[in-house]
Nucleic acid binder design. Structure first.
Lengths: 109, 109
DNA sequence: CGAACAGTACGATAATAGTCGAACTCGCCG
DNA sequence: CGGCGAGTTCGACTATTATCGTACTGTTCG
């Protein structure tokens, strides 16, 4: 009801899509940041994650995450507040998100 | 010593590369098959996984998996015998491989 | 030896993905 | 109202990826 953008239902999340969404350093950093700070807005996430990309590129990455079912976005005024869809991800791919969040040391190579 | 092809050392495995390698249905099927049957040769894996691609495409996918550090390949006669690098993956990304292998129901969407 | 088999390497092609800047929408506030 | 800030959308460009067929290397076996 209060949803203003598309989010795939939990039963439609697919492993290839989720993995593809996470297989990008910028998006991985985004997910880690979101896990750390909880709910946050696009620009704030970009800042907190230290991502040096253009606004449109950031928007693109956030769309990939959202359409893969990794993040949830609610509109609050002029902002989009994002959260991780932890429960949905855990329900569909148990242990996956935790494994990724706990592999912090291995992200850059 | 007996290695005849390149394998990245465990400390050089990176999460984006591993996730990218797994973010493909054909390669995911390959990994699941390898987890199920243990050691197997390229052609046999392709058959067991039910992959309908050309030989060169299969070879390409197997190279991606090997270079991401997901599989180990040893030469035995005319064949390459492949195994999952379970221990290395578990050491570097604890829980990741298990999470992926246990998500069998969610692969196709 | 020579044919069949296992797999790789190469080159081409088509599709996908990442990046940006500019233009746009919407809400907020002075 | 008018401008600013937050994001999205769009079009262009580039780079990467998936796929294939063909040619190749090396192995096994009749």
């Amino acid at each position: 009801m209060s949803e203003e953008v598309f989010h795939p239902p939990v039963e439609e999340l697919t492993l290839p899509k989720v993995l593809a969404a996470l297989a990008d350093p910028a998006r991985l950093a985004t997910v880690r940041t979101l896990a750390r700070v909880g709910e946050s807005a696009c620009g704030q996430i970009q800042h907190d994650a230290g991502l040096q990309v253009s606004k449109s590129t950031m928007s693109h990455h956030l769309r990939i995450l959202r359409e893969a079912g990794i993040t949830y976005s609610r509109v609050q005024g002029a902002r989009r507040m994002l959260t991780l869809r932890r429960e949905d991800l855990d329900a569909r791919f148990p242990g996956l998100l935790d494994a990724i969040l706990h592999s912090e040391l291995a992200e850059t190579g």
